[in-house]
Write a protein that binds this DNA or RNA. Structure first.
Length: 942
RNA sequence: GCGGGAGUGGCGGAAUGGCAGACGCGCCAGACUUAGGAUCUGGUGCCUUCGGGCGUGGGGGUUCAAGUCCCCCCUCCCGCACCA
């Protein structure tokens, strides 16, 4: 190739860019350019130019270091935060920006199972590859602060935090976590066994034998958040079954209210807040007891008020329902239990009551038979089928009646799958008049419908769910919905038939996984099987070496199988003799590991104090980097950038842990991430041939609009993710080689607003390269490599253009609008290329403003302009307001909304002058009205 | 079904209620070249009888002025999905 025959020696092309970039990356590393000083500890540095300055903590959602490395979509957010962080440094802040790795997780383990390579080996190799790729992009990270969740020094503290959670309980009377010792003291009067039982039941991390999501295909249990809507595992898409298994849970439900309410104090995108609110699903209403059979004996087990869970179970003599509309109780004409509700079997009588409606029996000769048949019917339906059938209500009468506490009416009890066992109490009072589902069901089974809220005049619909006065409701008649609710709740409480209540869709967090590659629990069991926390001195509990990394997996649909953990096979590790204060004894280790979400619940705090071996973070460092501030009461990182896919999982779990640490006094902030920003995704086209096989996207050409051809054959285009199997991956490595990292960064940032997803287009990258070339050429002689700037002052127009650019770019940078900032830099540069020589007074601010976006070329140009220091800590330019005012303004003159002329007048001309000048230009005899918008336009109404 | 977001040139995208299409890609023309998938310069919404007309998913409205505000409708994307 002779492509460079005529290329000047110092043309800014890929070869030169790569050379410059490597040099500056070395410089930054040697000089620790991006080291941010801490207030205390070994990262404190009082001599640092930003020591003690106002802080900015800029955070990326840290990546899982996958084996396939980064593609061009991954760094979009990383580059965005880097640009912002570099800008903030220039704006005077002490900026913490680094990058760690969320490195526990399934892929490395699955690879280990296949190849026998230890997950640590694979993961550490992948991390090295990621670090190299990130370095190549010129990201200004403080590398001293980079941590990986698999580092023993890191997960030691993950385990320590787990112990704090295990060793605390939630006190509803103060709505916060307290040390478990305080509960033990409160129960000191009880015998040890009983006390231990109550204590263990109240821990924020506790063991429960409860229905969990068992996934035989993965050999592990999963959290609700990890299950898709059609009841399969998010990872692997295997069927998931409800099984009663003994598992670790985290009492996230105790924080449901605070997790909702504190969203008001953070600056997050509204859709994300909404998703969290919906996921938590708070409903306010009442529990109401519907008596069944003989009168009930109200035996509520009494415990000290602040440690009792509200009694949620129905008793033998009453069915407890939850409703958000207690005001409609007079309209409850029947009840529905979930088919698997525990009371069903106790309520089913031997035979159908006399006069049972023909439709209610569904043709069966006894209630027991009807119930059994219906249960079989619902159990055979998959989750998908059940949802598809949702329109068609099914159910069966169980032969028993309950008493409506409001009016004493005897109402029939049904089971139906439109009532879910897992929500509320698994039972409802059915009010067809005000509930669409109940109406549908009532129509099918010919049940009575009583309206208890008067619909508006002319209402022709069925169930009416809106506001209106109560009717047919005894003492409630005439009241609005809100007053009726309050009144009936008072009445129910005084009649001991119910109570006001709040329920949540959120369930406790299933915290154990039957995997190898995760954090071991710092827990052992004594001979009685009680879980005992290991003392801090025994941390970390390191993962043992095992021969086989795989949990036992089963056929996808083997619902009856049981989990078997990989760690349980490390028998020497499992059975230990320890002295936990009462002499050496035999203990058995917990063999589950923590879920992948554990490590990401607190990593940002470790960034702030990465090498502290006395605490997970020093309080002074915590207060400085994430403590509360004026206008930022919650505290937390200043900017957190990542994808929407973590809207409920990671973000909810991390908030939960953070609040516990706050309650226990370890942190001063009550939210981990003050401002959240969701970056869009870079998507890509993929092409399939006739057989549906993917062809290399790079080699496809568009022969005519909409006609795509590969190797002479027509192919179909689809749009979506970038992935190996889709044969459309473009890597940052390729881009850096072909254009240089700066070009790549500028291209990614110029494609559109950071929050918007957009298609990747390799051929468009050249635009960014041309821009940087023009900047280079405006300052450097392409043949000699010397700076060509002149020290003569800029002409007035150029100077004004500069200050206009400065004002706009500064604002855009603060607002994360890098695409428009780049457009303004391009405009300024294009203005410079028309000048015979670039004045230094424009070149220098241009380089400084370019540096957050294209840091390597900016450093090089800064050096060529005669500066010895890095450009990193230069002040970002500030516009001179005097130069932002134009001397003359050209007004478009509209006549009836259409531009008919333009007039130029002095910027300080008064309205009358503008008006006269405008009217002189247009031929309008007697204008009805003339509107002058100073500085904008003149509008004439003819 | 409920909730949220979005529809602007061939493409990505700009526009505190004030000149729609900044900036970039592509395309067209030209320059420099043995050459161009390099670089530079100019042009580029659509239609046009060259006067102008029409244009921000569609329809109505408010206004001197609407991509932007209000009402109705359509399409696409995301979340939740019988949540009592």
């Amino acid at each position: 190739m002779n492509e460079q025959v005529d290329t000047p020696k110092f043309r800014y092309n890929a070869a030169l860019a790569c050379k410059i970039e490597a040099q500056w990356q070395d410089y930054w590393q040697e000089h620790g350019t991006f080291h941010a000083p801490n207030p205390v500890g070994d990262l404190a540095d009082p001599k640092h130019p930003r020591s003690g300055a106002p802080k900015q903590f800029v955070l990326d959602m840290f990546p899982y270091p996958s084996g396939s490395g980064l593609h061009v979509g991954h760094p979009l957010g990383f580059i965005g935060t880097d640009v912002f962080a570099r800008f903030q440094r220039m704006a005077g802040f002490n900026v913490l920006h680094t990058m760690g790795f969320d490195a526990f997780g399934l892929p490395a383990e699955q690879y280990a199972v296949q190849t026998g390579t230890h997950p640590r080996t694979t993961t550490e190799e992948n991390i090295l590859r990621y670090r190299a790729q990130l370095r190549m992009l010129g990201l200004g990270h403080d590398d001293r602060r980079s941590v990986a969740t698999i580092d023993v020094d890191y997960y030691r503290w993950t385990q320590w935090i787990f112990l704090q959670i295990f060793n605390s309980w939630f006190d509803p009377s103060v709505n916060k976590a307290r040390p478990i010792a305080e509960l033990e003291a409160q129960l000191a009067h009880l015998p040890a066994a009983e006390r231990n039982k109550i204590v263990d039941e109240h821990r924020l991390a506790y063991i429960s034998e409860a229905p969990v999501n068992w996934c035989p295909g993965l050999g592990t249990v999963l959290a609700n958040e990890e299950i898709t809507a059609d009841g399969r595992s998010e990872r692997g898409n295997f069927p998931v079954f409800k099984r009663n298994l003994k598992q670790w849970m985290m009492r996230i439900t105790a924080y449901a209210d605070r997790l909702i309410d504190d969203l008001d104090d953070v600056q997050w995108p509204e859709p994300i807040k909404l998703m969290q609110r919906n996921w938590i699903g708070r409903s306010t209403g009442a529990f109401i007891d519907f008596a069944v059979g003989e009168e009930s004996d109200q035996d509520l087990t009494r415990r000290p008020a602040n440690i009792a869970e509200p009694p949620r179970e129905s008793s033998k003599s009453a069915i407890k329902v939850f409703t958000t509309r207690p005001d409609t109780v007079y309209g409850a004409t029947y009840m529905v239990l979930a088919p698997e509700h525990e009371l069903v079997d106790k309520l089913v009588p031997a035979g159908w009551p006399a006069g049972t409606h023909g439709k209610w029996t569904t043709g069966h000769s006894s209630p027991a038979e009807a119930v059994a048949a219906y249960r079989l019917f619902t159990a055979s339906k998959s989750e998908v089928e059940r949802q598809a059938d949702a329109k068609e209500k099914t159910g069966v009468f169980i032969g028993a009646y309950a008493t409506n506490p409001a009016n004493g009416a005897q109402i029939p009890i049904f089971i139906a799958d439109y009532v879910l066992a897992g929500y509320g109490t698994g039972a409802i009072m059915a009010v067809p008049g005000q509930d669409e589902r109940d109406w549908e069901f009532a129509e099918i089974f010919e049940l009575p419908i009583i309206r208890t809220v008067e619909p508006p005049a002319g209402w022709e619909g069925k169930a009416f769910t809106g506001e209106g006065p109560a009717i047919n409701s005894g003492m409630l008649d005439g009241l609005g919905v809100a007053e009726a609710k309050a009144k009936i709740i008072d009445w129910l409480e005084s009649a001991k038939s119910g109570e006001g209540a709040v329920t949540y869709r959120l369930r406790d967090w299933l915290f154990s996984r039957q995997r190898y590659w995760g954090e071991p629990f710092p827990i052992v069991y004594d001979e009685s099987g009680r879980a005992i926390a290991l003392p801090d001195s025994m941390l970390p509990v390191e993962l043992p070496e095992v021969a086989d990394f795989s949990p036992k997996t089963f056929a996808d649909d083997d619902a009856g199988s049981s989990p078997e953990t990989p760690l349980s096979r490390a028998t020497e590790w499992v059975h230990v003799t320890l002295d936990l204060g009462d002499g050496p004894r035999q203990y058995t280790r917990e063999t589950n590991v923590m879920p992948q979400w554990a490590g990401s619940c607190w990593y940002q705090m470790r960034y702030a104090d990465p090498s502290n071996d006395k605490a997970f973070i020093d309080p002074a460092n915590e207060a400085y980097w994430v403590g509360p501030r004026e206008g930022q009461q919650s505290g937390g990182v200043d900017l957190y950038v990542g994808g929407v896919e973590h809207a409920v999982l990671h973000l909810l779990y991390a908030r939960f842990w953070h609040k516990i640490l706050f309650d226990l006094g370890y942190v001063s902030s009550f939210e981990p991430y003050h401002r959240l920003f969701n970056q869009g995704y870079i998507q890509a086209y993929a092409y399939t041939d006739e057989r549906g096989a993917y062809v290399p996207a790079e080699e496809v050409v568009e022969e005519q609009p909409g006609v795509y051809v590969w190797n002479g054959q027509k192919v179909d285009r689809e749009y979506g993710k970038m992935g190996k199997s889709l044969r459309n991956v473009v890597t940052p490595d390729e881009m850096c080689e072909r254009y240089g990292a700066d070009t790549f960064r500028v291209y990614e940032m110029s494609m559109g607003p950071l929050e918007v997803s957009r298609p990747w287009e390799t051929r468009a990258v050249v635009g960014a390269q041309r821009f940087l070339q023009r900047v280079w050429r405006a300052i450097v002689d392409e043949t000699t490599g010397a700076a060509t700037v002149v020290d003569t002052p800029a002409d007035d127009a150029t100077r004004r253009a500069l200050h206009k650019a400065i004002a706009g770019i500064r604002e855009d940078m603060f607002g994360l609008r890098f695409n428009t900032a780049i457009a303004k830099l391009i405009e300024l540069t294009n203005a410079l290329t028309k000048l015979p020589a670039t004045p230094r007074e424009v070149a220098e601010p241009l380089v400084v403003m370019l540096s957050p976006l294209a840091p390597h070329i900016a450093e090089e140009l800064w050096r060529k302009l005669g500066h010895d220091e890095t450009v990193t800590y230069q002040d970002f330019p500030v516009a001179d307001p005097a130069l932002l005012v134009e001397e003359t303004v050209t007004y478009p003159v509209q006549v009836n909304g259409k531009v008919r002329a333009r007039v130029s007048v002095a910027a300080d001309a008064d309205e009358e002058t503008v008006r006269t000048a405008a009217l002189a230009e247009v031929n309008v005899a007697n204008p009805k009205k003339v509107i002058v918008i100073p500085g904008k336009l003149v509008s004439v109404v003819a």
